[in-house]
């Protein structure tokens, strides 16, 4: 019941936000110069030809009309046609979605699976060498430019040592498309050579993407655990002789995770922003690289498609965060 209410609440929030977002990007990309039609028509096109094309694309009408049109189109599930790939934007996004999701989820898992235990350890061994080292790493994680880190890692692990591939998602043929996630598909296929190949390609981009998120998780978990450790119920459980490992990893962690979970929304923001840069550097055939390409080409429909995608992802992530809260905190006091 509570979960259903949360979902409805989120949707009620998401729809106007998305509409506003679309409007903002719409105006940014159309009011401000750079004539994409001229670009599309080619250098040799005459004025008349350009105008004809403009009319054909419906770009000659008032902006507000175009916006309303676009809303109507969106509501019917149509994201428009990319000016440059000449394919429906939806198809482009759909084809590239698995690559981005795979990359993002692996990065998220790296951040969470490594970050939470490191955060706990950092808190438990506060002000020891372990803690200091971890804190230096986390401060660095939030200060390093991801494209530079990517380059340094490429330089060392791919070019110098030759341990990992430089870029791309796979060498040779992709696995038969079942889920679109190469990790899953290669496993289902049972082709372990290809699986290893896929994992090798994923390692550098996923780690680079994960690094700032990892740092954030460690910081938040550390702070949460430190705060929780001061609580009376921890003193009580220690006084009653409950094994300390259990107190930390079962009881304290759950209380601390509530604040960490709130941050997962933020983390996804970091990751989503990261994909634009990381996918470009690693030639990862995902939505981030697509968005960057689309922006460079003034590909309206594609830019809008990416914006809608980003907004929806954010909405979904926030919903997941809310549900996570509801599960972790049974009191129902909410965020």
């Amino acid at each position: 019941m509570r979960i259903l209410a949360l979902i409805l609440q989120r949707i009620a929030w998401l729809v106007p936000t998305l509409a506003g977002l679309v409007a903002v990007v719409f105006f940014i990309s159309r009011v401000i110069p750079a004539d994409p039609v001229a670009k599309l028509a080619g250098e040799t096109a005459s004025r008349a030809q350009i105008e004809l094309l403009r009319e054909k694309l419906g770009l000659d009408r008032p902006l507000l009309v175009q916006l309303v049109d676009y809303y109507r189109q969106l509501l019917s599930g149509d994201l428009g046609t990319s000016l440059f790939t000449t394919r429906p934007v939806w198809d482009d996004l759909y084809a590239r979605l698995p690559a981005t999701i795979e990359l993002t989820i692996v990065a998220m898992m790296i951040a969470v699976v490594i970050g939470i235990p490191l955060g706990v350890v950092s808190a438990l061994y506060r002000n020891t060498i372990i803690d200091h080292v971890l804190r230096i790493i986390t401060v660095a994680g939030l200060a390093v430019a991801s494209f530079w880190l990517a380059l340094v890692l490429q330089l060392y692990f791919a070019m110098d040592l030759g341990w990992l591939p430089l870029q791309a998602r796979i060498t040779g043929f992709p696995p038969p498309s079942i889920t679109g996630f190469y990790i899953v598909d290669t496993l289902v296929e049972g082709n372990f050579t290809r699986f290893r190949n896929v994992v090798a390609h994923l390692t550098l981009p996923a780690f680079t993407l994960a690094f700032p998120a990892l740092a954030t998780v460690v910081r938040f978990t550390r702070a949460g655990v430190l705060e929780t450790l001061q609580k009376n119920f921890v003193v009580y459980q220690r006084a009653m002789g409950i094994p300390s490992g259990l107190i930390v990893w079962k009881y304290v962690l759950r209380n601390s995770l509530i604040s960490t979970v709130t941050q997962i929304g933020l983390l996804f923001g970091i990751l989503l922003a990261g994909t634009v840069v990381i996918e470009t550097v690693f030639q990862w055939p995902g939505i981030g690289a697509y968005a960057f390409e689309a922006i460079l080409q003034s590909d309206y429909a594609a830019v809008m498609g990416f914006t809608v995608y980003a907004g929806v992802v954010f909405g979904i992530v926030n919903l997941v965060v809310d549900i996570g809260h509801a599960i972790l905190d049974p009191r129902g006091t909410g965020a």
């Binding site: 936000t17 998305l18 977002l21 903002v24 990007v25 940014i28 923001g269 970091i270 989503l272 922003a273 634009v276 840069v277 968005a291 990416f306 914006t307 980003a310 907004g311 954010f314 909405g315």
Partner: peptide
Amino acid sequence: LAVPQIVL
């Protein structure tokens, strides 16, 4: 705030 700053 609904999309990453860098995208806008």
